[in-house]
Amino acid sequence: MKPANKTLRLDRYLATVTDYSRNEVKRLIKRGEVLVDGEVASNPASQVAPDADVTLAGESLREARPRYFMLNKPQGYVCAARDRRHMTVLELIDEDNPERLHAAGRLDIDTTGLVLLTDDGQWSHAITSPQRQCWKRYYVETAEPVSDKSIEHLQRGVFLHDEKARTLPARIERIEEDRLRVWIQEGRYHQVKRMFAAEGNAVEVLHREAIGGIELDPDLEEGEYRPLTEWEIGSVDGVADGD
């Protein structure tokens, strides 16, 4: 799902790309301080294209474009805008207005790996909405060896503690007796850990490797991030594909 180039109301456009409120913007428009493509704009409700040449008091403005990043999350960080006790993943982002970004699918404080950050709510909803059944891939290490029977249960779906609905079927690839690669379609609270707890085991290492078709860049060290490519942004159309 690539973001569409939609027009915006002039007052909303200006409030988006400046620090002025909508009311302040309307007053500036009425004073004739706003030009659109070289013409004085007098109607706050007029529509502005994203590529329009808008100037305010002689200064050229541009609409803020949606931003999309992948982060290799270390342990010890929470996926929140702010937290009184813990560092947040936004503290790892050296960008303007990082507080406007949010995680499209959170990770626990002790889980590492791929986190997608964006300020495009529609795009992140396409990833996190249960209806989309987006596959997430994890590397898992457990406290005890995982039996073939447990793998069968997980692949069929298990009942988590205090929940009435069985988890959707998972995909499991055994690496070693206590090391697996796990694909899930849901995003329930602490889901992977609780799935193995339902089988009497404990997850000791949990690392997210992929969301849909977006793979964690192997060149990113822990705590590093980079913008998503155009292909990665557009691949969200196919998030239901777990291959």
Results as ranks from 00 to 15, higher is better:
P3W: 00
P3E: 04
A4E: 10
R12G: 06
Y13F: 01
Y13I: 08
L14E: 05
T18H: 07
T18K: 00
R22T: 06
R27P: 07
L28A: 12
E33Q: 13
V34Q: 05
L35Q: 06
V40I: 14
A49M: 10
A49Y: 05
D53T: 09
D53M: 07
V54I: 00
E59I: 12
S60R: 13
L61P: 04
A64W: 09
R65Q: 01
M70N: 10
N72R: 08
K73A: 13
A80G: 09
A80K: 02
A81S: 13
L90D: 07
D94T: 11
E95Y: 08
E95H: 07
N97H: 08
E99Y: 09
E99T: 08
A103D: 02
G105Y: 01
R106H: 00
D110T: 02
T112V: 08
T112N: 04
V115L: 10
V115M: 09
L117Y: 01
W123V: 03
S124Y: 03
H125L: 13
T128F: 00
P130Y: 05
Q131C: 12
Q133P: 02
K136E: 12
E141I: 13
T142K: 08
T142D: 07
E144M: 15
E144F: 13
P145T: 09
P145V: 13
I151T: 10
Q155C: 14
Q155L: 09
G157P: 01
V158E: 01
F159W: 10
L160C: 12
L160D: 11
K164P: 00
R166M: 10
T167I: 05
I172N: 11
I172K: 09
E173F: 09
R174T: 12
E176S: 15
R181D: 03
Q185D: 12
G187C: 02
G187V: 07
G187R: 02
Y189E: 06
H190E: 13
H190D: 14
R194N: 13
G200S: 05
A202D: 15
A202P: 12
E204G: 06
E204A: 03
I214C: 04
E215H: 11
P218Q: 02
D219Q: 08
E221T: 07
Y225W: 15
Y225S: 13
G234V: 11
S235E: 09
V236N: 07
D237F: 10
D241M: 09
